[in-house]
Write a protein that binds this DNA or RNA. Structure first.
Lengths: 167, 167
DNA sequence: TGTTAAATAGTAATTATTCTTAAATAGGAA
DNA sequence: TTCCTATTTAAGAATAATTACTATTTAACA
């Protein structure tokens, strides 16, 4: 996920965006991260290089990048927006304790077929699976043992498909 | 999805909750709805019966019901929380234009298996698929024709499983 | 190099939600 | 049935995240 300044400049130009130092730094920070940072996370990360920068600029920049399709907004809970520069189709694993978001790149999840029983005139343009649970450190901290049956998930990966046995 | 006052009373008692008129009305309104209303939606719906009620009570009540496991909070975007009294496992279809949320009950979606490539110590407790797109009325209003290929979804439902052909 | 539309930074405003507190009340005990 | 108490309600204040407004600055193009 390494990218040069010129790559970023080209992407910005391709979207008709000016290449400013702040914008470049924010987008670069997001490209380097897999943690799905908040606007404030990015501000904290970039602010040392730009002592005059305002949090507002981060929000504005993220809005522009999102509108241009260079980044995605990921929402887990309604408290704050999280951002992601990984545009390849993927899904998320969310720790309900510490709110960590981990990318799930299993390509089989990208082959779901249209669900049954939905309005015929609804046009689906994308979908995402959000897996929720407890990350390792939160689980250990709480003294939880793993109990896969509670998820409704099959404990092991089934070769060749995402479905379990028909019930 | 019809439920009597005594059913509600029993559910509240089972969770150690007092059966107050406001709480009953809020939960009843949520049970009758499939629109995944916001706290304010519910307030508007219930307020005529309780002119003195405050929005605060709705928030408090929804918090109590959620903690008791009687309702779920559904988040689409970070702007506001939406609520759902439908506890049976299901998924959602979200209109990115008008923010409508439609339940997707296709049982095949409840049989996904553990995704590959995730940390071994992460315990998944649940998952949900969020399908995004344009509902009929928003699509017609914007003059969009249906283009299923943009979703990565197979246009037709494949009998017997959720996966498409292996590529 | 000059021009201009876009971007930045600072401040204020807005929105959704939570906190605090006092009064009211449901539900169990006497 | 009446009393007691913890819970619930309502009202207003407070908070957190985000957006709006505006003057200044700057990147990109001519």
């Amino acid at each position: 996920m390494d990218i040069s300044f010129n790559d970023i400049k080209q992407k910005f130009q391709g979207c008709g965006l000016k290449t400013t130092p702040q914008r470049t730094a924010i987008y670069d920070a997001l490209l380097r991260s897999t943690a799905h940072p908040t606007a404030e996370d990015l501000f904290d990360q970039v602010a040392p290089q730009f002592p005059m920068m305002s949090l507002n600029t981060v929000y504005y920049t993220l809005g522009v990048l999102r509108t241009s399709g260079l980044i995605h907004e990921v929402n887990i809970g309604h408290t704050r927006a999280r951002f992601d520069a990984n545009l390849s189709p993927h899904h998320h694993l969310i720790c309900v304790e510490c709110q960590a978001i981990v990318d799930v790149m299993d390509p089989r999840l990208n082959r779901l077929t249209s669900p049954a029983g939905i309005p015929k005139d609804f046009e689906i343009t994308s979908y995402q699976v959000a897996f929720r649970g407890f990350c390792g450190s939160c689980r250990r901290h709480a003294g939880r043992s793993i109990n896969h049956s509670s998820s409704g998930l099959h404990p092991t990966t089934v070769k060749g498909g995402l479905h379990g046995k028909s019930s």
